[in-house]
């Protein structure tokens, strides 16, 4: 397996803990995800939680529909995915406008900031545009110290104002994935 070699994932980073605390504070209950290395620490925290339920998906669009169902049943959720997964969601994102439910996605970015793998670049380059064309407001966090504020703002507008929102967690923040022979 190709592990990231950047420090933030080797030692527990602070920003995933901040995100987890925000999700707890907003009473988020369902956390559908397609795994990504950049989300691994947060996913671990969710899977160890008594109140947040981690729900592994086979494809990201499942998570959009799941969150609509969760809201119908009175629960908030958040979708964790990588930038490549945003493309898988496009038609299902219609639900955010049709049902006007509080949609929040936390998207770890690939295909930028020194990307080694060219296959990540096309979708990574269009991630923000795809989201915006789909009616999702996009916020971005690039530095560790701003993650808490950005996710807090995103959660606030998603859950308090039903404004569908995605936070792009920059590859610079997560660390460039290093491929070694």
């Amino acid at each position: 397996m190709h592990a990231r070699t950047e420090a933030p994932l080797e030692q527990a980073a602070a920003w995933p803990e901040e995100i987890f605390a925000i999700l707890e504070r907003y009473d988020v209950r369902q956390v559908p995800y397609v795994p990504d290395a950049g989300h691994s620490q947060l996913i671990q925290r969710v899977l160890g939680s008594a109140t947040l339920r981690g729900i592994p998906l086979t494809t990201e669009e499942e998570g959009v529909a799941l969150l609509a169902g969760a809201w119908a049943g009175g629960q908030r959720g958040v979708l964790l995915m990588q930038s490549s997964g945003v493309g898988n969601c496009i038609n299902m994102l219609s639900l955010t406008q049709i049902f006007r439910f509080p949609f929040l996605a936390l998207v770890t970015m690939r295909g930028e900031w020194g990307e080694f793998n060219p296959w990540q670049v096309p979708m990574g380059s269009s991630t923000q545009g795809v989201l915006e064309l789909s009616g999702i407001r996009v916020l971005r966090a690039t530095h560790p110290l701003e993650v808490g504020d950005v996710v807090e703002a995103a959660a606030s507008q998603a859950y308090n104002a039903c404004t569908p929102t995605a936070v792009l967690l920059a590859q610079r923040l997560i660390g460039t994935k290093v491929f070694v022979k």
Partner: peptide, 18 residues
């Protein structure tokens, strides 16, 4: 009336919430 492929997942989100 749309969201083809999403019915079971809507049901799952609802079932877990209720």
């Amino acid at each position: 009336w749309g969201a083809m492929g999403g019915a079971v997942m809507l049901g799952l989100g609802l079932a877990l919430a209720q």
